[in-house]
Computed example of a mutant assay.
Amino acid sequence: MESQTAQKLLQSFMQFRKTARYMSHIAGYKPSEFKVLATIERGANNQQTEMKVSEISQQLQVTPPTVTQIINSLEKAGLVERTVDPEDRRAVKIKLTSAGVETTKRIREAFTEILLNLIDYLGEEESEQLAELLSKVHHYFQELNR
């Protein structure tokens, strides 16, 4: 027999999934696109202005073909560009265009604004509790996957 608490948790997860869809196109971009942009940006901040698809896929823990699809979309939008690695002509490196830098900044600002509004709505204490609980939930599901 299912407990009321388990039923309530299931309903909450389902509602949260719908809420996540709202946040899934912040500033018109998918979360996967933003993750790739942010990963390349972090590389640039660490003096690595260009990254190989394999490096991006490693950091995001997804397959290179997945990253390649996202890169294709971002390149079409003019946010990234590909260059051939002069040291290894078979390797292609990806870097943000100036439009990519601006877009990444705009998405980050929009996301931050949403979170600041959530903190205003919940209050500081409940926001802290929520962050801690979500971290615990994440940890629990990571342990299940091992």
Rank of each mutant, 00 (worst) to 15 (best):
74 L>T: 01
76 K>Y: 10
39 T>G: 04
68 T>F: 07
130 L>Y: 05
41 E>G: 02
93 K>M: 09
21 R>W: 08
115 L>A: 15
94 I>G: 00
138 H>L: 11
57 S>N: 08
18 K>P: 00
1 M>A: 12
15 Q>V: 05
83 T>K: 06
32 S>N: 04
25 H>M: 10
88 D>W: 10
139 H>K: 12
45 N>V: 08
123 G>L: 06
102 E>K: 13
74 L>S: 01
62 V>D: 00
103 T>C: 03
121 Y>I: 00
124 E>F: 13
4 Q>M: 08
55 E>D: 13
40 I>W: 00
37 L>K: 07
71 I>F: 05
97 T>S: 06
139 H>L: 14
75 E>Y: 03
123 G>Y: 03
88 D>H: 15
36 V>T: 03
112 T>F: 15
11 Q>A: 13
51 M>A: 06
30 K>V: 03
38 A>K: 11
36 V>W: 02
2 E>H: 07
39 T>Q: 06
98 S>H: 12
25 H>W: 10
40 I>M: 09
16 F>V: 05
19 T>R: 12
124 E>S: 15
43 G>S: 05
42 R>V: 02
101 V>L: 07
113 E>R: 11
42 R>L: 07
110 A>L: 12
7 Q>F: 06
69 Q>G: 04
86 P>I: 06
119 I>G: 01
25 H>F: 08
140 Y>I: 12
129 Q>V: 07
78 G>T: 12
94 I>R: 00
10 L>D: 09
19 T>W: 10
57 S>A: 14
48 Q>P: 01
18 K>I: 04
77 A>V: 02
15 Q>C: 07
103 T>L: 01
140 Y>A: 14
91 A>R: 14
73 S>V: 05
5 T>N: 12
11 Q>Y: 12
7 Q>A: 15
14 M>D: 13
129 Q>R: 15
73 S>A: 08
92 V>T: 13
19 T>M: 13
136 K>G: 02
31 P>E: 09
79 L>F: 07
139 H>E: 14
88 D>Q: 13
76 K>S: 10
31 P>T: 05
4 Q>H: 04
70 I>T: 02
35 K>D: 04
16 F>T: 07
62 V>I: 13
139 H>I: 08
110 A>H: 11
2 E>N: 07
11 Q>W: 13
96 L>S: 03
65 P>C: 05
71 I>K: 01
76 K>N: 10
78 G>S: 12
36 V>A: 03
10 L>Q: 10
97 T>A: 06
127 S>Y: 10
43 G>C: 06
32 S>I: 09
60 L>K: 03
142 Q>M: 11
74 L>P: 00
28 G>D: 11
134 L>S: 13
137 V>L: 12
39 T>W: 05
29 Y>M: 03
111 F>K: 05
30 K>L: 10
138 H>K: 12
142 Q>N: 08
9 L>E: 11
60 L>R: 03
118 L>D: 03
40 I>R: 01
80 V>Y: 01
143 E>M: 14
66 T>S: 05
101 V>A: 04
124 E>R: 15
107 I>E: 03
23 M>H: 14
134 L>R: 08
146 R>P: 01
16 F>W: 13
17 R>D: 11
107 I>W: 09
56 I>E: 00
141 F>V: 04
8 K>A: 09
34 F>T: 01
78 G>C: 11
14 M>I: 10
